[in-house]
Amino acid sequence: MAAVRVRQHVNPLAQKYCTPVNPLEWEQVYAKSSQPLHVDIGCAKGRFVLQMAQTEPNWNFLGLEIREPLVVEANQWRSELGLTNLHYLYCNANNSLQPLLSSLTPGILQRVTIQFPDPWFKTRHAKRRVVQPKLVAELANYLAVGGVVFLQSDMEFIAVEMRDRFAENPAFARVGADEWLTENPLQVQTEREIFTQNKGEPIYRALFQKVLNAEKKNINTNS
């Protein structure tokens, strides 16, 4: 299949991305819609969740991506492999999470990943970054208690911003006492992660868990 050429940066505040998606008919999306759901926000070409879906067939996976050509191509790969626990959706996560997640059976959403998002370096473009307080609040509303959010970036200032926004929400508790996780807790690495590691450059990772009470605390993974 020929490679799809798409823009590297897409402004999520542009008019064409302002309309939220309609809720999905989950029973039509997945062969077993009652399986736990993992949502990858900003999945790009979708190869991370493509591998995850094959590695963990007892989970369902949803990749969200704002660049439509990548979604079309990723769904073609999914269909060619016959994967019935994977779906890609063209949408703007900053205005589409609520209608998507509100249609889920409570407790289904158990894992979320946000990995190497577009940093939007200029301060005046900070509102274009994907991890905004509203997105964190929506995940707090719909993630199952005990569910996790995994964040990583090769840009320290972006990782700090993402980490701090989740830490500020009382629904989440940070996993681990160290400043950053040294290893990826999942079974699959993204292409950007592998590329960055091969260059010997640092990756900043943080894991958060949805907790019952509102009290913020650290969870020591070694205990």
Score class of each variant (00 low, 15 high):
N198K: 14
R163P: 00
M162R: 12
V175Q: 07
R205I: 00
F195C: 04
E183W: 04
D178K: 14
T196I: 13
R163W: 03
N213L: 09
P202T: 03
T190M: 07
F195T: 15
N184P: 00
K217G: 06
P185D: 03
D178P: 01
R163Y: 03
E168A: 15
M155F: 14
R163V: 01
P170K: 09
V160T: 08
R192V: 06
E193R: 12
N213A: 09
F195Y: 12
I194F: 02
Q197W: 01
N213K: 12
E179V: 12
P202F: 02
I158M: 15
N213T: 07
N169F: 04
V188F: 00
K216G: 04
E215T: 11
M155C: 09
D178Q: 13
Y204I: 02
T182K: 14
L181E: 05
Q197G: 05
L212M: 07
A167N: 09
N184L: 07
R192Q: 10
S153A: 15
K216R: 14
L186D: 01
E191F: 03
L212G: 06
F166T: 02
L181C: 06
L181H: 11
F208T: 00
L207H: 06
F208A: 02
V160C: 04
E193A: 05
I203S: 06
Q189M: 13
N169H: 15
T196G: 02
M155Q: 11
P185M: 11
T190E: 02
N169G: 00
K210S: 01
D164M: 11
E193H: 09
E191T: 05
Q209F: 08
D164A: 09
N198D: 04
F195I: 15
M155V: 14
V211Q: 11
F157M: 13
E215S: 08
F195Q: 15
G200Y: 06
G200N: 06
A173D: 04
V211N: 04
A177P: 01
T190K: 09
P202W: 03
V160N: 03
V160H: 06
I194M: 08
E191S: 04
F172S: 01
A206I: 09
A173Q: 10
L181K: 10
E168S: 08
A177H: 11
V211C: 09
R174D: 01
V188H: 03
V188G: 04
S153D: 07
A171K: 06
D164L: 11
E191R: 13
M155G: 03
G200S: 05
E156C: 10
E183D: 13
E215Y: 07
V175G: 03
L207P: 00
A173N: 12
E179W: 12
N213I: 03
F172P: 00
A206E: 01
Q197F: 00
E193K: 12
R165H: 07
N198I: 00
Q187I: 14
N184D: 02
D178W: 09
K210E: 00
R174I: 15
P202Y: 03
E156L: 15
E161L: 15
A167W: 09
T190Q: 06
A214R: 14
N184A: 08
A167L: 14
E183M: 10
R174P: 00
N213V: 03
L186R: 11
V160L: 15
P185I: 07
F208S: 02
Y204H: 11
F172N: 02
P170M: 11
M155D: 05
L181M: 14
P185V: 05
R163A: 05
V188Y: 00
E183H: 13
E161M: 15
D164R: 12
A173K: 11
E156G: 05
R205M: 01
